[in-house]
Simulated scan of single mutants.
Amino acid sequence: MIVSIKELQEDIFRKFTEKTNGGDFGIVNIEFPLITETLVVSLEHYRNQNTIYKFSFENIQSYMLIQENLPDEKKEGVLYSSDFKSIILKELINSKYMEYLHSWTDLKIFFEGIALKKIRHYCVYAQNILVNVITDQVPIIEIIEKD
């Protein structure tokens, strides 16, 4: 079932309580078939493997997988979008990763003006792993119930 970011967060809190955080989830699958260029990240809560939270990112410009190195959010000055935020999927604003891409890559060549302003940095949070994704598309969020 495709859901909004708000519905995702409500589902997590309903099933696992409001004390749940990204460390309670594990990534069970990451797919990036070059034919479709859609990055798919799937997570499960450690207490309930019957629900999969699946995020599909299209039109990927860059992605980075980080293991065991969580950022110092205060030192880095990480800000989150108030419109797109859950405990396992967030939109970051003015991140160091985005700064790097703007300054040191050819991102500006492919996206000019208004299109460049549509580029967003999303991050999937799981235990010990972060998946950073740069795209101009809002991710598709799915909740899949296994029986």
Score class of each variant (00 low, 15 high):
residue 2 I to D: 15
residue 6 K to T: 14
residue 6 K to W: 04
residue 6 K to I: 14
residue 6 K to N: 13
residue 6 K to Q: 12
residue 7 E to M: 06
residue 9 Q to A: 05
residue 11 D to I: 06
residue 13 F to D: 11
residue 13 F to G: 04
residue 16 F to K: 00
residue 16 F to I: 02
residue 18 E to L: 10
residue 18 E to Y: 06
residue 20 T to D: 13
residue 20 T to Q: 12
residue 20 T to M: 08
residue 23 G to H: 12
residue 24 D to F: 13
residue 24 D to C: 08
residue 24 D to Q: 09
residue 26 G to F: 14
residue 27 I to E: 00
residue 27 I to P: 01
residue 27 I to G: 00
residue 28 V to A: 02
residue 28 V to F: 02
residue 29 N to V: 06
residue 32 F to N: 02
residue 40 V to N: 11
residue 42 S to G: 06
residue 42 S to T: 15
residue 43 L to V: 08
residue 44 E to T: 07
residue 44 E to I: 08
residue 46 Y to L: 14
residue 47 R to Y: 14
residue 48 N to M: 13
residue 49 Q to F: 15
residue 49 Q to Y: 15
residue 50 N to T: 11
residue 50 N to G: 14
residue 53 Y to D: 06
residue 53 Y to L: 08
residue 53 Y to S: 01
residue 55 F to P: 09
residue 58 E to H: 11
residue 61 Q to P: 00
residue 64 M to D: 11
residue 65 L to P: 07
residue 68 E to H: 12
residue 71 P to R: 06
residue 71 P to S: 09
residue 72 D to G: 06
residue 73 E to T: 15
residue 76 E to H: 02
residue 76 E to K: 06
residue 77 G to I: 01
residue 78 V to M: 05
residue 80 Y to Q: 07
residue 81 S to M: 11
residue 82 S to R: 04
residue 82 S to K: 09
residue 83 D to I: 05
residue 83 D to R: 12
residue 83 D to V: 08
residue 85 K to D: 12
residue 89 L to H: 02
residue 90 K to R: 13
residue 91 E to S: 02
residue 91 E to M: 04
residue 93 I to C: 02
residue 94 N to F: 07
residue 96 K to D: 09
residue 98 M to C: 03
residue 99 E to F: 03
residue 101 L to A: 05
residue 108 K to Q: 03
residue 108 K to C: 00
residue 109 I to S: 01
residue 109 I to P: 00
residue 109 I to V: 07
residue 110 F to D: 02
residue 111 F to G: 00
residue 111 F to H: 01
residue 114 I to K: 12
residue 114 I to E: 09
residue 115 A to Y: 13
residue 115 A to I: 07
residue 115 A to K: 13
residue 118 K to G: 01
residue 119 I to P: 01
residue 122 Y to T: 06
residue 124 V to Y: 00
residue 125 Y to L: 15
residue 129 I to C: 03
residue 130 L to N: 12
residue 131 V to I: 05
residue 131 V to W: 00
residue 132 N to E: 13
residue 134 I to G: 04
residue 137 Q to C: 07
residue 138 V to F: 11
residue 138 V to D: 10
residue 139 P to E: 05
residue 139 P to H: 04
residue 140 I to R: 13
residue 141 I to K: 01
residue 141 I to R: 03
residue 142 E to Y: 03
residue 142 E to C: 05
residue 143 I to L: 14
residue 143 I to M: 10
residue 147 D to T: 10
